[in-house]
Simulated scan of single mutants.
Amino acid sequence: MLTTGDRVRDYVVDGVVGHGGSATVYRAHHADDPGAAVALKVLDDHHRDNVHLARLAREYDFAGTCRHPHIVAMTERGPYWLAMELLTGGPVSGLTDRADILVALGQIAAALDFAHSLGVVHCDVKPTNILLSEHFSDRGAVLVDFGVARALTDHLGRDITHIEASLPYTAPEVLYGRTPTAATDLYALACTAVELLTGATPFTRSTTFALADDHLRSPVPTFSRRIDWATHAFDSILAKAMAKDPELRYDTCTEFVTLITRALPV
C-alpha cells in the first residue's frame, strides 16, 4: 500500500479511494500540476504477474479507444499502474430517485452502444463499474473498468474456457462458453437495471451452481404483481432483454433503456 506523498513516476499520492481484488485506486495529482486530481490504479505487489499486467494494459487500451462522455477517460499507463479521470460521486447504486436511475441507465446504454460500434464488448457491466460525477446533473454516470473487455473479433469462431464476468450479471451464452457479444452486455445491463430499480438482481440464489442454473434455465422474473410501480410492459421488456438466446434480445442497449423509461412512472 502506498501512503500520502508517495510517488508513482510523476504522480503524487493524496489518499486511498478504494481497493479491489488485485489493485488499489488512489487519489493522486501530477507533480507538476497539484490542482489536477487523477485516479491512480496500482496493481498490488503480488498481482504484478503476466495475467494481471495484460489485463491492466487491456483496460487502458479499450477504454482509451472508446472515447465517450460516459466512458472513463484514460490519462497515462505505466508497467503496473493506470492514471485516469477521478470520479467522486460514488457508485450508481447511490442514486435513489427513479428518474435519475433511468437517466444514468440511458447514459451507460449510449456508452455501451458506442463501444459496440467500435467492436468492443465490456463484459463486466454491473453497478460497481458505473460511477457518478460529483454533481450528477453535470456529467451523470460513467462506465469504468474495461479490464475484461474483449474485441468482437477476439476468439472468433472459438469458444471461451474462462469466465471473468460477475455471475449475478452473466448472460447464459457466456456460461455455455460462447464468445461474448454486444447482446451479452445488454443482458448484464438489464440485470443492472433490475438491481438499481428494485434493490436486488433478477436471480439471487446463494450458491454458484444455483445462480448459474437460474441464468441458464429459469424464466426471467416478473415484477408487476409484487411492486406497485412496475408495469406489465416492464416485465415484457425485461423478458426480451434477458432472453436466453442472445439473438432474441434488443438490437441496442439504448432501445432497451428507452422502452423501460417509457414503461415506468417517474
Rank of each mutant, 00 (worst) to 15 (best):
A200T: 13
L196H: 07
A212Q: 05
T192I: 11
E195G: 01
F203T: 03
L197W: 06
R217N: 15
P202H: 03
T198W: 07
L211D: 06
T201F: 00
L189S: 01
T208H: 08
L216C: 03
G199N: 06
E195N: 08
A200R: 13
G199C: 10
F209I: 15
T192R: 02
H215E: 10
V194K: 01
R205C: 12
A210S: 11
T192P: 02
H215P: 01
T192Y: 04
V194Y: 07
A210G: 12
L196F: 07
T201Y: 03
T192M: 00
A200K: 08
A190H: 04
R205K: 11
D214G: 02
P202Y: 03
V194D: 00
A190S: 10
D213K: 10
T198Q: 13
R217Q: 13
P202D: 10
R205D: 15
G199S: 12
F203G: 01
P202F: 07
F203D: 06
L189V: 05
V194H: 01
T207P: 12
G199I: 06
F203R: 05
A200P: 04
L216Q: 14
T201M: 06
A210W: 10
C191Q: 04
A193I: 03
L211R: 13
D213T: 14
L211W: 08
A193K: 00
E195V: 08
H215F: 03
L197N: 01
A212F: 08
R217V: 12
F209D: 14
T192K: 00
D214H: 11
A193H: 02
A212H: 05
H215L: 11
